[in-house]
Design a protein around this nucleic acid. Structure first.
Length: 195
DNA sequence: TTCAACCATATTC
DNA sequence: GAATATGGTTGAA
């Protein structure tokens, strides 16, 4: 179906959960706390090698990275949907720039993240961070309980920082990669850069 | 290719 | 609370 990504090749790169990197000793992000919805939410658009990005951050860290594939207005609508009721302000910050650079692989260092999610979602995101560059995982392999692959898909899809938490390194058990929040072409581009 | 289960949320009574 | 709809799935028919 696609001439660039080969399904059989992708399937061959799928790694079992045991071969992932070690779990980080410290939580690599700041959990969303009660009252954080009153924090200033600043956002800006960035054109990068992986596509046009909408990046948002709070004083605590980057809280959202999304692709503006469907247009800036749509991306903003998505941001407001995730942070309903929170005032947003169009203002570029150094942190946003650093995050955008990191998405291209042009940033050395740690980007502070500020993530909002349920316990289950955070558990999955933590697993995603352990998938090394060039390796893939299937939804089923990531699920803490057998048969929870569907739920993993939902949790991965809810990931607010699309590229920094490598949600694109998860594919179907048969090697298929169709189905991606920001569109299949985006996922293809991200994977082609890494494989 | 199609279909029926499986699991965690969000939404809506 | 309970019912329902909806996913970035899976495995079998």
């Amino acid at each position: 179906m696609n001439d660039k990504l080969n399904r059989a090749a992708l399937r061959g790169r799928i790694r079992p959960i045991e071969s992932l990197g070690p779990a980080p000793d410290a939580l690599p992000w700041v959990d969303w706390a009660v009252g954080d919805e009153r924090l200033a939410l600043r956002h800006g658009f960035y054109d990068t090698a992986v596509g046009r990005l909408l990046v948002a951050d709070t004083p605590k860290g980057v809280c959202f990275i999304g692709f503006a594939t469907a247009g800036d207005a749509e991306a903003l609508a998505d941001l407001r949907r995730r942070f309903a009721g929170q005032p947003t302000e169009a203002r570029a910050t150094e942190l946003q720039k650093a995050a955008a650079a990191a998405c291209e692989g042009n940033f050395e260092g740690v980007i502070p993240l500020h993530l909002k999610g349920t316990a289950f979602q955070r558990e999955i995101w933590l697993l995603l961070l352990r998938i090394p560059v060039g390796a893939l995982c299937s939804y089923g392999a990531l699920s803490p309980r057998a048969g929870a692959a569907r739920a993993v898909g939902s949790a991965v899809g809810a990931n607010p920082v699309s590229v920094l938490v490598p949600c694109h390194r998860v594919v179907r058990a048969d090697g298929g990669w169709r189905g991606y929040y920001w569109g299949t072409p985006v996922k293809e581009r991200l994977l082609l850069r890494e494989l």
